[in-house]
Amino acid sequence: LFVQGSRSLLALALTCRTLRRRDIIIPDVLFARVTLSRRSSRAQVASFEASIEAEGSTAGNAVLYFKNSCGTWGSRWIGLGWSHALQRMPNLRSLDVRLPYMESTPHFFRQLVIGATNLQSLTLANYEPACDDSPLGDLGGLRRLSIDFLGGPGHSEYFLTRDSALGRALLNFRDTLKELSLDSIRWNL
């Protein structure tokens, strides 16, 4: 009677957790939109990780929107294991992450190309131009792309050419792209 939306379901899940600590019931639908931010506690991050990594768990399949703007603290996901995390979330439609907190960028993009076949929206903060031999150029079919390059002293400007990873990606997105946001590049496409 009282469940009228995801917020109500969350209250229900929390109640289940409180009343039956050893028999936690959390509907998978609660994992559809996940946001980890600097305000997220270590416990919240660890809880999410444990939920989708548990043996036989289908929670990862329910994740459609995932945003992670955490700092370097917290789960190993933030620094390591991203490719594995992507494997556990095969139905992602939207991904929003800060790159410096991940494992090697090429490995991450390779997994994204192979596994996230339903991805429609990709937001990357602090993309490092020096890592531009990444498989980003092999992505296809995105509707929304937003990239913020890591700039400032010690970081080179990004040259957007037909041969660059982003250039190849943009050419792949020619028939699907609806929204594009780029910051700090030299356009030479």
């Binding site: 937003s146 700039g151 943009l170 997105f173 020619r174 028939d175 699907t176 792209l177 609806k178 929204e179 594009l180 946001s181 780029l182 910051d183 700090s184 590049i185 030299r186 356009w187 030479n188």
Partner: peptide
């Protein structure tokens, strides 16, 4: 990119 309806470019040189 004929379907782009929203474009945001910042600090872009040509």
């Amino acid at each position: 990119w004929p379907h782009v309806t929203k474009l945001h470019l910042k600090n872009v040189s040509i």
